[in-house]
Simulated assay, not measured.
Amino acid sequence: MEQDVLTGYKPVNDTNVYYEFYPNQSSDKTFVLLHGFLSSTFTYRHLISLLKKDYQVLSVDLPPFGKSAKSNRYVYSYKNLAETVIKLTELFGLKKMVFIGHSMGGQIVLNILHMRQEIADKAILLCSSAYLKRAKMPLVLTSYLPYFHRFVKYWFARTGVKRNLQDALYNHSIINEEMINGYLEPFLKDEIFMALTRMIRDREGDLPRKILNQIQTPCLLIWGDHDKSIPLKFGEKLKQDLKNSELIVIRETGHALPEERPMEIFEYIKGFMEKSQMAAE
Rank of each mutant, 00 (worst) to 15 (best):
S173Q: 15
L207Q: 03
L81P: 07
K52L: 07
K275R: 14
P138R: 11
K239D: 03
S71W: 15
K153S: 10
P11V: 03
K133G: 08
L6I: 15
I215G: 09
E204A: 04
H255M: 11
H149M: 01
I108H: 04
K70D: 05
I215C: 10
L165D: 09
L145N: 05
G36C: 14
S68N: 06
A168Q: 02
L33R: 10
G106S: 12
L141C: 05
I48L: 07
L6W: 11
K53G: 02
Y131V: 13
N16F: 07
E267Q: 12
G101F: 15
N111V: 00
K67G: 00
K122G: 01
K228G: 00
R163C: 01
V12C: 03
L125C: 09
K233A: 09
Y74R: 06
V75G: 02
K243M: 12
N24L: 07
I248V: 13
N13V: 07
G271P: 03
P23Y: 07
G93A: 02
E236G: 08
Y22G: 01
P218V: 06
Q25M: 06
I48K: 01
I222N: 14
H149R: 04
S68A: 07
H114S: 11
Q117G: 14
S229E: 13
Q3C: 05
D121R: 12
Y44F: 12
D206W: 14
K210N: 09
Q56F: 01
T142C: 10
L94N: 11
D121Y: 05
S40M: 05
Y55R: 02
L145W: 11
T253Q: 07
N213E: 15
K10D: 09
R45C: 08
T84S: 11
T7Y: 03
V161E: 08
F156V: 06
M97V: 15
H35E: 13
A69G: 12
L238V: 08
A120D: 08
G160Y: 13
L58D: 02
R209I: 10
D241N: 11
L132C: 05
V17H: 13
M199E: 02
L212H: 03
Y76C: 06
I192Q: 10
L125A: 09
M278K: 06
T43I: 06
N80A: 09
K239R: 06
Y22W: 09
R201V: 12
L33C: 07
A69H: 04
N80Y: 02
W155P: 00
Y9R: 07
G93L: 03
V57Y: 08
N72W: 01
D167H: 10
K87G: 04
Q166F: 10
I211Y: 01
M97L: 11
F272P: 02
S59L: 14
P11Y: 13
S26R: 03
Q277I: 09
A130M: 04
P63R: 08
H102M: 10
K122D: 03
T89G: 02
L145Q: 07
G235V: 12
P208G: 09
I248C: 11
E178D: 15
F99N: 01
K270D: 06
V12A: 09
L34M: 13
Q107Y: 02
I200R: 06
W223N: 00
V152D: 09
T253F: 14
V85E: 06
L94Q: 10
E177S: 15
P258S: 05
Y74A: 05
